[in-house]
Design a protein around this nucleic acid. Structure first.
Length: 564
RNA sequence: CGGGGCGUGGCGCAGCCUGGCUAGCGCACCUGCUUUGGGAGCAGGGGGUCGGAGGUUCAAAUCCUCUCGCCCCGACCA
């Protein structure tokens, strides 16, 4: 078998799963974010896929296989040909017609359903596929975890009622939980932002790992959990101290730009200051207000405004468009739309910038001095913040890898693409939709992140590339070779996926590789034990090993594997 | 896209600053002998347009310019 293992980690692999996948001969890089999957890697991906298939089929989803190459017309219809941006890999055929390489398949699947489904009687429908996607990521990284070309399971559901949509959504959430459990992952389902896919409601499945790219906040007291970018703040309580109304007053604050500097210079606590952050968006520049000891959460602001995109505005842009000097911007008299965190109006008299260099205001008050466009939860949660759902818990924040994401899409695509059905009144309605993704390779990588030691991978049994590896101490000795081959055939005959290390190398080399590959059970066949009719079986995870009678023990191996 | 770093046999690296013998080391590979329960020992051997192009120079892996690729840090996503 072709399993090119490496003693040393490749220099360009940062995270453990990437290093181990390369070292264990599972993957090789071809270009940035583009990987060849070698036999060991493919076996694992197939295991994950199979688990996904079983759980999808179990909830009544049907498998399809949709084209990767998709005509631009469909994407024009949904509006995403323009919106999706550079991440969409666009290509032209010989007739100079525009296509893209599918990063996701809402358009294609909606096109199929709108042609085939006419009546509410034909709904609901849930279809899924497991297929290669392409996203021209700005920055691919971490091996197969964030590749540009990657395997994804994507499912889409179509409904004639909200209740049916929610039911399928719940079924999916259940199926996803089973999938990740079977893959041996410690995961959390968290509330999430629906991002560019669009839609109204969404959850992510996060595998807890320090190498994760996301931060998730979860309650220590109840089961509330959310991506930090969406995590709700608890109902605000007013800051203590000086709440008396004071007159608006201009103060000279030379070079004091940050909250810390103001705290020190004016001897006020940070919860007496209001920060003004300016963002650029498709609706122009906007300002967000949060208390001085808080951070603003741009995703919440984006959702509050309801804009397509929003980024922190560069200092230069702010100055050029408004003349306001960064570090001294404040809401009083500000010529931008102002969105404020719900904590801000509870403050009676506070400090803000005065939109003038080296100047701040004190005694500022909402209403009297400031006009707020909209009010709501805008702050980024912090560890230790009160839970928004229960009385006793507080937020804890950990890093996670997003392995799955489920969305309720509503009618965003069906409306744009006229995917209509007739209801029981004979009236035309857009179908309601949900969509549901799992990163197959990312799930495998996440499993490695959570299951490895200094020696290598420790595969969870259900997704291990093989269950057993046979290590003959010396393959050129007849008795050992014969016993090894017998073991190999017997195990395969009883349905155990087995690898035989028939290389002429010394045992030490075979042990090192077996540990690196992470196969759950090692069977060591050596001359001394064989003379007394015994073989050694060693567990990868615990390192424990015992002698067992040969060949009698072989028929008990399937049983042994179940107990792992 | 912005910022930083790196490209030298299959892998991991040294050499570059301060140009100068035949470009070196470890691992891997090939041959032979020995060894054979935890990455063997000895002896011999093969393999490199120093990412590419141009320039400076008597002389370039080394200096300069351009270019390509890859990696890392920030805004997106499975």
């Amino acid at each position: 078998m072709f399993i090119p293992t490496l003693k040393e980690s490749p220099a360009d692999a940062e995270v453990m799963s990437h290093q181990l996948m390369v070292r264990a001969g599972m993957i090789r890089q071809l270009a940035a974010g583009i990987y060849s999957i070698l036999p060991m890697g493919l076996r694992v991906l197939r295991k994950v896929e199979q688990i996904i298939r079983e759980e999808m089929n179990r909830i009544g989803a049907q498998e399809v296989y949709l084209p990767s190459v998709q005509p631009s017309e469909l994407w024009e219809e949904s509006g995403r040909w323009k919106l999706y941006g550079k991440e969409l890999l666009r290509i032209k055929d010989r007739h100079n017609r525009s296509f893209c390489y599918g990063p996701t398949h809402e358009e294609v699947i909606t096109d199929i359903l709108r042609k085939e489904i006419k009546s509410y009687r034909q709904l609901p429908q849930t279809l899924y596929q497991i297929q290669t996607k392409f996203r021209d990521e700005v920055r691919p990284r971490f091996g197969i975890m964030r590749g540009r070309e990657f395997m994804m399971k994507d499912a889409y559901s179509f409904h004639s009622s909200e209740g049916s949509t929610r039911k399928t959504y719940a079924d999916m959430a259940g199926a996803y939980s089973k999938i990740f459990e079977r893959c041996g992952l410690n995961y959390k389902m968290v509330q999430a932002d629906s991002g560019s896919i669009g839609g109204s409601f969404s959850n992510e499945f996060m595998v807890l790992a320090d190498s994760g790219e996301d931060e998730i906040g979860f309650c220590t007291g109840c089961d509330y959990a959310s991506n930090v970018e969406m995590a709700e703040a608890a109902q605000p309580s007013a800051p203590p101290a000086n709440q008396e109304t004071e007159a608006l007053k201009e103060v000279h604050t030379p070079d004091k730009k940050t909250v810390e500097e103001i705290v020190e210079f004016l001897s006020v606590s940070p919860d007496r200051i209001v920060k003004t952050i300016v963002f650029e968006s498709d609706q122009g520049l906007v300002a967000g207000l949060v208390r001085g000891d808080r951070e603003i959460n741009p995703v919440k602001l984006k959702n509050m405004i309801g804009c397509e995109w929003l980024y922190p505005a560069p200092e230069k842009m702010i100055y050029e468009q408004t003349g306001y000097p960064c570090g001294f911007i404040g809401p009083v008299g500000l010529k931008l739309k102002i969105y404020a965190d719900q904590e801000v109006p509870l403050m009676k008299n506070f400090v803000t910038g005065a939109n003038k260099k080296d100047t701040h205001y004190t005694g500022v008050e909402i209403g009297r001095d400031i006009v707020i466009e909209k009010l709501g939860d805008l702050r980024r949660i912090q560890e230790g913040d009160a839970c928004p759902r229960c009385a006793s818990g507080v937020y804890q924040i950990k890093r996670g890898i997003e392995v799955g994401h489920i969305f309720i899409l509503g009618t965003k695509y069906s409306q744009a693409m006229k995917a209509l059905y007739l209801d029981d009144q004979g009236k035309e309605n857009p179908m309601m939709m949900g969509c549901y993704g799992i990163g197959v390779g990312r799930t495998a990588a996440a499993a490695i992140e959570q299951n490895h030691d200094e020696k290598g991978i420790i595969w969870p049994p259900f997704i291990a590339p093989f269950q057993v590896i046979i290590l003959p101490v010396n393959f050129s000795v007849d008795s050992i070779r014969t016993a090894s081959e017998t073991t190999y055939r017997t195990l395969w005959d009883s349905g155990v996926e087995t690898l035989l290390d028939d290389r002429p190398d010394r045992l030490g080399v075979k042990f090192k590789d077996a540990e690196l590959l992470g196969i759950p059970l090692q069977i060591v066949i050596g001359p001394k034990n064989l003379e007394t009719g015994k073989i050694e079986i060693k567990q990868r995870k615990t390192g424990n090993s015992d002698l067992y009678p040969f060949p009698g023990i072989l028929e008990k191996i399937p049983e042994m594997l179940k107990s792992l």
